[in-house]
Simulated assay, not measured.
Amino acid sequence: MRLYEKPGSPFWWLDVTLDGHRYRVSTKSPLKKPKREARVAADRIVDQLEQQAKEAAKRAGQAWTISESLTKWWDEHASHTDSADAIWSNIENLDRCLDCSTRVDQLTSAMLMDFRAKRRGELAHRSAKTKKAKERAAQRPLKYVSASTVNRDLAYLQAALRYVKLIHLQPIADLPWSKIKAAENEPRNRFASHEEFDAMQAIDDADLADIILAAVATGLRRGNMRWQWHMIDLRGTSVTIARTKGKLPMVIKLSPPVVAMLKRRRAAALAETGSIPSGADEVFVWRNFKRRWARLQKTLELVDFRWHDLRHTFGTWARKAGVDLPTLKEAMAHKDIKTTQRYAHVEPDEIEGTFDKVAARMAQSAAHSKQKSRKVR
Rank of each mutant, 00 (worst) to 15 (best):
residue 196 E to A: 08
residue 282 E to T: 13
residue 251 V to H: 08
residue 101 S to W: 14
residue 92 E to C: 07
residue 297 Q to C: 12
residue 297 Q to P: 02
residue 231 M to N: 05
residue 209 A to S: 11
residue 156 Y to L: 12
residue 319 R to W: 05
residue 270 L to K: 12
residue 348 P to H: 00
residue 62 Q to V: 07
residue 273 T to E: 09
residue 109 S to E: 15
residue 373 S to K: 13
residue 278 S to F: 13
residue 92 E to H: 09
residue 207 D to F: 10
residue 239 V to D: 03
residue 122 E to Q: 12
residue 151 N to Y: 06
residue 77 H to E: 07
residue 123 L to G: 12
residue 96 R to L: 09
residue 290 K to G: 12
residue 256 P to S: 02
residue 38 A to I: 03
residue 371 Q to P: 02
residue 221 R to H: 02
residue 341 Q to H: 12
residue 195 E to V: 15
residue 377 R to T: 13
residue 35 K to N: 03
residue 316 T to L: 00
residue 54 K to P: 05
residue 175 L to A: 10
residue 92 E to M: 11
residue 12 W to V: 01
residue 172 I to P: 00
residue 376 V to Q: 12
residue 130 T to H: 14
residue 130 T to M: 08
residue 10 P to E: 00
residue 196 E to P: 07
residue 248 L to R: 15
residue 1 M to F: 14
residue 338 K to A: 15
residue 309 D to R: 02
residue 338 K to G: 13
residue 342 R to W: 07
residue 76 E to V: 00
residue 241 I to A: 01
residue 353 G to C: 07
residue 304 D to H: 04
residue 185 N to I: 09
residue 133 A to R: 10
residue 19 D to C: 08
residue 29 S to F: 01
residue 20 G to L: 07
residue 259 V to M: 02
residue 227 W to F: 06
residue 176 P to E: 11
residue 15 D to Q: 04
residue 259 V to G: 01
residue 347 E to A: 11
residue 40 V to F: 14
residue 107 L to C: 00
residue 307 W to C: 01
residue 321 A to L: 04
residue 55 E to K: 15
residue 82 D to Q: 11
residue 363 A to I: 03
residue 308 H to K: 09
residue 130 T to A: 04
residue 30 P to C: 03
residue 21 H to D: 12
residue 290 K to I: 11
residue 18 L to G: 02
residue 324 D to G: 04
residue 309 D to L: 04
residue 177 W to N: 02
residue 193 S to G: 13
residue 17 T to G: 05
residue 115 F to M: 13
residue 302 L to P: 06
residue 1 M to E: 07
residue 266 R to I: 08
residue 246 G to I: 10
residue 152 R to V: 06
residue 366 A to W: 13
residue 213 L to T: 04
residue 80 H to S: 10
residue 143 K to F: 05
residue 20 G to V: 01
residue 86 A to V: 09
residue 1 M to D: 01
residue 50 E to N: 12
residue 212 I to K: 10
residue 129 K to I: 11
residue 184 E to Y: 10
residue 233 D to H: 06
residue 218 T to M: 04
residue 199 A to T: 05
residue 289 F to P: 02
residue 136 R to A: 11
residue 113 M to Q: 15
residue 210 D to W: 11
residue 268 A to P: 04
residue 101 S to Q: 15
residue 60 A to D: 06
residue 325 L to R: 03
residue 142 L to Y: 13
residue 249 P to C: 00
residue 186 E to A: 15
residue 333 A to V: 10
residue 121 G to D: 11
residue 172 I to V: 05
residue 193 S to Y: 13
residue 180 I to Y: 07
residue 157 L to A: 06
residue 366 A to H: 14
residue 308 H to W: 12
residue 37 E to Y: 15
residue 24 R to T: 06
residue 189 N to L: 06
residue 229 W to H: 02
residue 246 G to A: 14
residue 223 G to P: 06
residue 293 W to E: 00
residue 4 Y to D: 09
residue 177 W to S: 07
residue 35 K to I: 07
residue 276 I to T: 13
residue 158 Q to A: 10
residue 178 S to R: 14
residue 194 H to F: 14
residue 57 A to Q: 11
residue 296 L to H: 01
residue 204 D to C: 08
residue 358 V to G: 05
residue 332 M to T: 07
